[in-house]
Write a protein that binds this DNA or RNA. Structure first.
Length: 168
DNA sequence: TTAGTGATATCC
DNA sequence: GATATCACTAAA
């Protein structure tokens, strides 16, 4: 098992999103217990030019994290009850991120975070730290693309982009 | 299909 | 200050 480092995340978000499929998301609980889930679905949100990206209207208190350097964790509360997990990619000051949408045995971004006890406390943390990280088992994976979901507010053009990546 | 839930952004 | 909106889920 190889732990993914800064260099992995310091690349264009489309590439990172694709490469994260099939990797292992590892969570260390305060109790010390380790939980591992295999990532089965991701989505890329590619900066201010992408109207589906939270940062497309510019910097706000909430999107500030997206402007941080690669490997920063971006977590926010959706619909008042679901924590969604993202990882910042690319250069600092370039607000792009990858949403971890699902793992094997944990379909849906909200369920995934619930299963791993992930909450807003981890927001702004590092994905290379000791609370949450991602490992590569070296196994080859087949990835298929699809349209992103839940972004009806974005431009038609952006809604049609195949920026969702799934384990085949 | 629809209700539930609360932070955030945007508008007074 | 108020309200509209949301990268969702569970129950029916």
């Amino acid at each position: 098992m190889k732990r993914l480092k800064y260099e992995f995340y310091h690349r264009p978000c489309l590439q990172v999103a694709q490469d994260l499929v099939g990797k292992w998301l590892v969570r260390r609980l305060p109790s010390g217990e380790l939980l591992r889930l295999r990532i089965s679905e991701t989505e890329a949100y590619c900066g201010e030019a992408d109207t589906a990206c939270h940062a497309h209207k510019g910097r706000t208190k909430r999107t500030e994290v997206l402007y941080a350097d690669a490997g920063t964790i971006y977590i926010y509360l959706c619909y008042g009850m679901h924590w969604l997990l993202n990882v910042v990619t690319g250069d600092a000051e370039d607000p792009q991120a990858v949403l971890i949408r699902a793992c094997v045995d944990a379909p849906g971004p909200g369920r995934l975070t619930k299963r791993l006890f992930i909450t807003g406390e981890l927001n702004r943390g590092s994905i290379c730290g000791d609370e949450l990280w991602i490992e590569d088992d070296g196994q080859a994976t087949e990835v298929e693309t699809d349209k992103r979901v839940g972004i009806g507010y974005a431009s038609q053009e952006d809604q049609d982009r195949l920026w969702r990546f799934k384990l085949k």
